[in-house]
Design a binder for these strands. Structure first.
Ligand code: MN
Ligand code: MN
Ligand code: MN
Ligand code: MN
Lengths: 227, 227
DNA sequence: TAATTAACTTTGTCTTATCAAAGTCAATTG
DNA sequence: CAATTGACTTTGATAAGACAAAGTTAATTA
């Protein structure tokens, strides 16, 4: 069994992997993501590579093998199911579940995880809108755009929040922009670098404005129009 | 913060402490309880003693300091609240929650524990009838007797199961002798070394017989007669 | 009282995970 | 093309936690 340290490395390698699949994750990025010195990351990655969970090329970087990716996705599944359990069943605020999940993800047994999955009725997304990998290690790709790319004036919904720091999530709470919230992007001001949008909150419209850099942290989906 | 290793040692020192308060727990008992070699226990106890959580006398044994006992009781509180959560909220069988709780007890934050305690409505006992220490580290002493000592013929209830191996708990399940079950001890046969009792199960009486050595594993309480 | 033995402690070694600091490589700059 | 620089790797050290095996005690037996 992989130690909790190895589980954390694999998960970070998965989460920090470059968008371009041909690229490898550099050791600098990885050591920063895991929170250790570069030398530590190098020696750990060597060990993980001996276990055939990653490929490692000195001075090039690191990449998950299929076995390593499966393990990473299982950790991610545990993390996200736990986050949802903490919010939906135990009533914690979504801005404060991450730290607990970070520990619990290494300790929850398969048996317990199955019960959690059942109770939550096999959910597809965690409280932040992150997709939950299936028990088989498959993750569904969402086709989302950010508040910067999405069409103006059309009814859309918040799908996912990319900045998951507690402070930012509390701000998101205040604006009522949780995943699932219905909105309409009113306008983008390229001079002011701001986005203005309507949050449709129980019939009432609330106007929210944010900078481009913040708008990028929201993924949205066009509302499916039932015909 | 105490490491999970130290938490486990403190909890075992608490649970394995001799009934006679003047006695010290021997290193042999402790190393067996924790599941390490005697040498390992000696060196760990030395370290824990340096942290003033236990007193240690070579060749005499080990005893918790007040600070160590508080820590042990907090771990025990976490363990037992978690067990109850797993049974009552997540629907695991009470015979299979111990292993999960053994890991989770080191990882659940104070914040999360408070939520668990709330949801369970501040319970006093875990699924096996073991008392749950308060947040302040106080544990209520139950005045119970075993199926060997308790009066014959009077209506009593199962209060606590002392053998918590999965196999034994499954047997207890079959007999319907879970904590809270109403029973009446019919007879003790000192020649055959057996106890016969009635389990009052939804009106119907079911007769159960067990040896003295098994009867000792059940703690019972006289039913309070509301006048 | 002397010999034996069981329980305990010590010693030496191992594994995992970490850091600081020194060394190396390769990409950029002049 | 040489020099410089930043990113990475190596080396050496440390801490926690564990085991095996050798060495001590102290209690029991003779
Ligand atoms: Mn983690
Ligand atoms: Mn999440
Ligand atoms: Mn434990
Ligand atoms: Mn219990």
């Amino acid at each position: 069994m992989a130690s909790r340290t190895i589980e954390n490395y694999l998960k970070q390698i998965y989460l920090s992997r470059p968008a371009d699949e041909a690229q490898w994750l550099t050791m600098g990025k990885l050591s920063a993501a895991v929170g250790v010195t570069p030398g530590t990351a190098t020696s750990m990655v060597r060990a993980i590579s001996d276990a055939h969970l990653v490929e490692y090329e000195p001075r090039a970087g690191v990449r998950l093998t299929p076995a390593g990716e499966q393990l990473a996705l299982h950790v991610l599944r545990r993390h996200r199911l736990i986050e949802l359990l903490l919010v939906q069943v135990l009533g914690l605020d979504w801005s404060e579940v991450h730290e607990d999940a970070e520990e619990l993800e290494h300790v929850v047994s398969d048996r317990l995880l199955m019960k959690i999955d059942e109770i939550l009725q096999h959910p597809a997304f965690d409280p932040h809108g992150d997709p939950i990998p299936t028990a088989g290690g498959v993750i569904r790709r969402q086709d989302c755009c950010t508040l910067l790319d999405c069409p103006l004036g059309e009814p859309t919904s918040i799908a996912r929040i990319l900045d998951q720091s507690a402070e930012f999530l509390q701000y998101v709470n205040q604006c009522g922009l949780l995943p699932g919230a219905e909105i309409r992007v009113a306008n983008r001001n390229h001079q002011a670098q701001t986005v203005e949008l309507m949050a449709i909150k129980s019939g009432e419209n609330q106007v929210v404005a944010m900078s481009f850099s913040v708008a990028e942290k929201f993924l949205v989906q066009l509302n499916e129009q039932k015909k």
